[in-house]
Write a protein that binds this DNA or RNA. Structure first.
Lengths: 152, 152
DNA sequence: GTACAATTATTGTATGTACAAATGTATAGA
DNA sequence: TCTATACATTTGTACATACAATAATTGTAC
C-alpha cells in the first residue's frame, strides 16, 4: 500500500514521502523481527549482541567493540548486557590486561538460543526480500547507500 | 559506505544485507531529524503529533485518530500528549458527544513552533533525497512498498 | 432496562535510547 | 613521582515503546 494511504495523509512532496517510506518500512521490518525473536525472550538489541559475540568465534568482546558493530547505535550497552547475564546467555569478566575494559563472552546456552533465533530471523528476512528480484535488491541497496553518503 | 563495513561484519547474504541496510539507513535518517528538531525541544513522535494536528485544520483529533496516522506505531499516545501539554503546544478536552474520547487541539504556540521545526526537517529531507535522481527516488519508493506488501 | 461486550483512554511495568555525569584505570609529560 | 588527560564503563534522568491491566463510557442482546 502507498505510504500516503497508510498514514492517511495527502500527497506529499518526494523528499517527505521517501524519507517517511524508508522509516516506516524499517519499523515494519523491525516489528516482524521482534515477533520472530519473541519466543526466545530476547529483544532485537539483545539478539544483535549475541550475534556479534558469536562472530568473535570464542574471543571475548569489549563493550566498545560491541557498540561499534551494532546496527542501531545504542547509548547503553551495559544494560543490554545486564539482561543477557540475567538470562545466563552471556558472561562478563574484567579484562586482565586493561582493567578499564570488560570482556563479554557468550555462553553455550547463549549460542544455542542464538542459533534457534537466527533461523526465525532469517526466515523473516527471506520472506521480505523474496518480494524483489535480485536486480531490484541490488538497486535498493545502492540507493540506500547513496542516501547515507556524506554531503559533497 | 557499504553496510558491511559500517557494522564491521563479513559479506552477508542478500536477505540479511538488505534488511540491515534498510534498518540502518532509517536509523541514520531518524538521528538527523532528531537533531533537526532538537533546538525546538521536541522529539520525533511529538513533532509527528503536532504535524497531524495541523493537518486537521482546526478540527480536533482523538487519540485513536492520531495513532492511526503516526509513522511509528506508538503504544502510548497518552504520554506523548502529556508532554506536549506540559509545553503548552496542545490542549486536551473531553469529547462531549462521546465521553470516552478526548479531543486534542494544537495551540497557536504549537502551530508556530511546528512551522519553524518543519522548515528544519524539510531541509534535512531534501538534503538526503537530493542525492538520488527523480527516477531513482521513484524506484526506491516502489521497492520499499513492495517490501511491505503482504505475502501472496 | 439490565447484563455483557466493545470502545477509548489511562496507568503500570519492563525494556530501550539519548545524553550527561561519575567512577575507575591507564598513559604521558613536567 | 605527581598531575593532567584520555579511555572504558557505569550510573542517573528523561523520554519512547511494548504489552498487559484497569477504568470509564457506550452499544447491544435479551
Amino acid at each position: 500500500m502507498e505510504i500516503e494511504n497508510i498514514i492517511k495523509t495527502q500527497k506529499m512532496p518526494d523528499h517527505a514521502r521517501t524519507v517517511i517510506n524508508v522509516i516506516y518500512t524499517a519499523h515494519e521490518i523491525e516489528n516482524r523481527i521482534t515477533d520472530a525473536v519473541k519466543p526466545y525472550d530476547i529483544s532485537i538489541p539483545q539478539f544483535n549482541v549475541l550475534r556479534i559475540l558469536k562472530g568473535r568465534k570464542g574471543q571475548p568482546a569489549n563493550l566498545c567493540t560491541i557498540q561499534e558493530r551494532m546496527i542501531a547505535r545504542m547509548s547503553n550497552t551495559t544494560r543490554i548486557i545486564d539482561r543477557l547475564i540475567d538470562k545466563g546467555l552471556v558472561r562478563r569478566k574484567q579484562c586482565p590486561q586493561n582493567r578499564r575494559k570488560v570482556e563479554i563472552f557468550i555462553t553455550p546456552e547463549g549460542l544455542e538460543l542464538l542459533d534457534r533465533a537466527s533461523t526465525a530471523v532469517t526466515a523473516v528476512e527471506k520472506e521480505i526480500t523474496d518480494r524483489l528480484t535480485p536486480r531490484e535488491i541490488e538497486d535498493l541497496n545502492t540507493a540506500l547507500t547513496r542516501l547515507r553518503s556524506q554531503k559533497p
